[in-house]
Lab assay of single mutants.
Amino acid sequence: LTVEVTLDGRRIELHGLSEEAHEILRHALERNADDKEIKKILEELRK
């Protein structure tokens, strides 16, 4: 799955996400998580 997010003013596409990762990010974006929170989530998903 692919998600497009804006971090530090740049639009980035995240490819190859699992369903779980996609859901976690989608929920964070829906509640307008800040860049710091999104980065933390991405860091966790990379593990």
Score class of each variant (00 low, 15 high):
S18F: 03
K47E: 13
L29R: 02
T2F: 09
E4T: 14
E44I: 12
L45P: 00
R31L: 11
L1H: 11
L42V: 10
A33D: 04
I24L: 14
L17P: 00
L17R: 00
I41Q: 01
D34S: 13
L42W: 05
R26I: 15
E20D: 11
H22P: 01
H27Y: 01
H15D: 09
A28I: 06
K47N: 13
H22Y: 15
R10D: 10
N32Q: 12
D8R: 02
L14K: 01
D34W: 03
R11P: 08
K39P: 01
V3E: 03
H22D: 08
I41D: 00
T6L: 13
R26A: 09
K39Q: 09
E30Y: 02
R11M: 10
R26F: 05
I38D: 00
E20L: 10
E30P: 00
A33G: 04
D8S: 02
E19K: 12
I12H: 05
L1F: 13
V5S: 02
R46P: 06
E4C: 13
R10A: 14
A28P: 00
D8H: 04
V3L: 15
L42D: 00
K36H: 14
E30R: 03
H22W: 15
L1S: 08
D34C: 07
G9F: 00
E19R: 07
T6G: 04
E13P: 02
N32C: 11
E44Y: 08
E20Y: 12
V3W: 04
D8V: 03
I12G: 02
L1I: 13
K36A: 14
E13L: 09
E20M: 10
L17M: 07
K40F: 07
I38P: 00
G9D: 06
E43D: 12
L42T: 02
E19W: 12
L45I: 15
H15C: 11
R10E: 15
H15K: 09
L1T: 08
A21N: 06
S18T: 12
R11N: 08
H15T: 12
I38C: 02
R46N: 14
T6S: 10
K36Y: 13
K39R: 13
I12E: 06
T2I: 09
E43S: 10
E19L: 12
E4A: 02
K47Y: 10
S18Q: 04
L29I: 13
L7D: 03
K40N: 10
L25T: 00
V5Q: 02
I38K: 01
D8Q: 06
E30A: 12
R46G: 15
K36V: 14
V3P: 04
H27D: 15
R46V: 14
K47H: 13
R10N: 14
E23M: 10
R26G: 05
L45E: 01
A28D: 01
R26W: 02
G16Y: 07
G16K: 04
I38W: 04
